[in-house]
């Protein structure tokens, strides 16, 4: 896993209080990891803080899975 993926995974585990093995690339925050809509807003805020980037609201709505977050943040980093 890339450094970005590791950092995303760590934030997800911490904020959603889930086991590490559940946090796979394809895991959906809401369907697989027990998040509600407010949790996903907070997750996006945590990504912004960790990666020092701004995720616009329309982009945030497309981030539904761990993989979505990793690919968005990887693109943002490049």
């Amino acid at each position: 896993m890339s450094d970005i993926a590791e950092r995303v995974k760590k934030i997800v585990i911490e904020h959603l209080g889930v086991d590490a093995e559940k946090v796979t690339e394809s895991a959906s925050f809401i369907d697989d990891l027990g998040a509600d809509s407010l949790d996903t807003v907070e997750l996006v805020m945590a990504f912004e803080e960790e990666f020092g980037t701004e995720i616009p609201d329309d982009a945030a709505e497309t981030i539904q899975t761990v993989g979505d977050a990793v690919s968005f943040l990887t693109k943002a980093a490049n």
Binding site: L38, V41, E42, M45, E48, E49, E54
Partner: peptide, 10 residues
């Protein structure tokens, strides 16, 4: 303002 949590109010 972007750092205010959605859980702040509830």
């Amino acid at each position: 303002p972007r750092r205010i949590s959605p859980f702040f109010i509830p």
